[in-house]
Nucleic acid binder design. Structure first.
Lengths: 126, 126
DNA sequence: TCTTTAATGCAACTCAGTTGCAAAAATAAA
DNA sequence: TTTATTTTTGCAACTGAGTTGCATTAAAGA
């Protein structure tokens, strides 16, 4: 349970997430960095960054894992309450700054809510 | 694009969904009917039932496909606007009768919303 | 510089879901 | 009922995301 080491690969991934506020699917990230690092490495780096709260993870419409770094992501414990939006035309995925209201259910204890919105983004809405 | 044939396997699956209002993961369904029918058959039957609007599909927390037949499921075109709840202790998954309000996003056209609630159910909440 | 410990690459694996194809079972037609 | 047509099924092989064991490499600390 040591410290995250500042390797070349970690730097590359971190820089990427600092450069965009969009979310990205792990598969795309693996493809993007296919020359620089191994698939396993990416999965493991993302795990560590998530543990540290540097990025947060969620599932896209197809059930594929996505990661993003949003403004909420610097807190020690990231509580993922904001929705995500995925464009069904261009595939773009992003965090939505909008606090969703979690419904109360009788006798149930709701710990987390994941809201995924799908449709067409500004560019793809004709 | 013919009619759905009323095979033994279709009957079994249909009866199952009529007997419960809970949702079930495809993996569990394959296990449940492992003696009666093949894995591919289940996947294909579920596809057909979904096309017909007899059941609806959604993804659980782990990204695994789940199906359920709820009261909304007899309409010709099923619009899946209700949330789902998954108990992190016992694993039970169910539809929640609660109309969620889809947030409007500027310049975006939101076609669908998927809300997944996780926590502990009535039985597992101590 | 040396030592310790974490991170990486690689290859092999797991597991959900899909697919091609021949055989079997429903439905429609005769 | 029998025959012809078309959908379903079983099977086995495959795809693709994500994981893992292990030997090697590279950080960080002393």
């Amino acid at each position: 349970m040591g410290v995250i080491r500042n390797t070349k690969s970690v730097q590359l991934v971190t820089e990427f997430f600092n450069s965009t506020k969009e979310a990205i699917g792990v598969v795309d990230l693996v493809e993007k960095f296919s020359e620089q690092m191994n698939k396993s490495t990416i999965y493991r780096i993302l795990d560590r960054l998530e543990d540290e709260g540097k990025v947060h993870a969620f599932l896209g419409v197809n059930g594929l894992k996505h990661y993003a770094k949003c403004k909420d992501c610097s807190h020690t414990e990231h509580v993922d309450v904001h929705p995500h939006f995925q464009c069904t035309t261009c595939g773009k995925v992003e965090c939505v700054s909008y606090e969703i209201s979690i419904p109360k259910l009788p006798n149930k204890n709701i710990a987390q809510a994941q809201l995924l919105l799908t449709g067409t983004c500004e560019r793809c809405t004709s």
